[in-house]
Computed example of a mutant assay.
Amino acid sequence: MTAVPDIRPRADTRSWYRRNEIAITPWLFLAPGLLFFAFYVIFPIFQSFQVSFYDWDGLGDLTEQGRFIGLDNYRELAGDRNFEISLWNNLKWLLLYLLAIPMGLGIALFLNQTVTGIRLYKSLFFFPFVISQVVVGLVFSWFYLPDVGLLNVMLGWFGLSINILGSPDTATYGIIAAGLWPQTAYCMILYLTGLNAVDPEQIEAARLDGAKGPKMLWYVILPQLKPATFIAFVVTIIGALRSFDLVSIMTNGGPFGSTRVLSFYMFEKALAEFGFRMGYGAAIAVVLFLIMLVFIAYFLWSMWRDERAAR
């Protein structure tokens, strides 16, 4: 009599980790980074929300030394003239800072060529990106000096003179121009990297179809640069909204508080002024965070929508 083989599935005697090793291993590598991100980014964000509901000088325990005042800090912001000026200055930064993206693209297209000395040109355009914001602020402060600054020396050839950082009408734009110098270099680097990944077969096919110049750029090259453009937009917007270094170095918020931005005004209220209004500074930080969140969420949604439509 022939024995019937046992075809019942055998119980898996491996440990739970062995059975799920492929799914778990990536998370083990990500765990240290996620813990640092949660501790140094996510937790402080929620802590800022909490502090914004208190009248607290930053000394002692928040719940013991601070006084819970609810939304009073936000109500005060609504009528604060200095907050309004800071907000409008941030909007100016946001709109004008975005010029770094097309300028960076234009420089990247120029540098993406095989001509004599192109490595030297790339190094010169890359140089502003590796300079500290403090150094950039000092260099442009000297450049804008009313009497001996290079700008006024050149304007003097035509009988002109301007005190950019000394006038409330021009100081903010002078600081933005200083910030555009390294930001343009950063966008240039992103686009140079993106241009190296452009499909040459699509370029050649477009040329055979008669596409060249602006049409080649708009219909063939730019669609392949969407990832670089997305990163450039996000980084540029964040840089515009947290523009603290240059304001602090070049004008310290002056003249007459005309160059304040939200990040600098937050620092003034929380740490620089007598009294240390940590709760009020946290409320400003929350407003700044929500503005950033709106822009970043919009770009993430737009990118997700485009990728879904391409499937």
Rank of each mutant, 00 (worst) to 15 (best):
D80Q: 07
Q50T: 13
G70Y: 01
L62V: 09
I45Y: 15
F49M: 05
G79W: 05
D55Q: 08
W56T: 00
G58Q: 10
E64W: 05
Q47K: 13
S52K: 00
G70L: 00
W56L: 03
L77V: 04
E76R: 06
A78S: 15
G79S: 12
I69V: 05
Y74G: 06
L77T: 00
E64C: 13
I69C: 14
A78E: 04
G70Q: 01
R81L: 14
T63D: 10
N73A: 09
D57I: 04
L77C: 13
D61Y: 07
Q50D: 14
D72S: 11
D61S: 12
I69E: 02
F68V: 03
Q47M: 14
D57A: 10
L62Y: 00
Y54Q: 01
G66W: 03
S48I: 07
R67G: 08
F68L: 00
D55H: 05
R67L: 08
D80G: 12
S52N: 03
F49P: 11
V51P: 03
D72N: 05
D72K: 04
G60N: 05
I45F: 15
L62S: 06
A78I: 07
G60K: 02
T63C: 13
L71A: 05
L59M: 07
L59W: 11
L71G: 04
S48C: 15
I45R: 12
G60I: 01
A78N: 06
Q65C: 14
N82V: 12
L59I: 14
F46L: 08
N73Q: 02
D57K: 06
W56F: 04
R67K: 07
F68D: 00
L62M: 05
F46R: 09
T63H: 10
L77K: 00
G70M: 03
D80I: 07
D55L: 14
L59N: 10
L62D: 01
L59Q: 14
D61A: 13
I45Q: 13
L62F: 06
G70N: 02
D57P: 07
I69R: 00
Q47T: 08
Q65V: 09
Y54E: 03
G66R: 00
Q65H: 14
E76S: 05
R67M: 11
D72F: 11
G58L: 09
G58W: 06
N73T: 03
V51H: 03
R75C: 15
I69M: 09
D61C: 10
V51L: 07
F53P: 06
Q47E: 14
D55S: 13
D55K: 04
G60C: 10
L77I: 01
R81I: 10
Y54G: 04
F53C: 11
D72W: 09
N73C: 11
D72M: 12
D57C: 15
L59K: 11
R81A: 15
N73W: 08
S48V: 14
F49Q: 08
G79P: 11
F68N: 02
G70C: 02
F49K: 03
Q47H: 15
D72T: 06
Y74K: 01
L71R: 04
D55G: 14
Q47P: 15
G58V: 12
S52M: 06
L59Y: 13
D72I: 04
R81Y: 10
R67V: 04
D72C: 12
G79Y: 15
I69G: 01
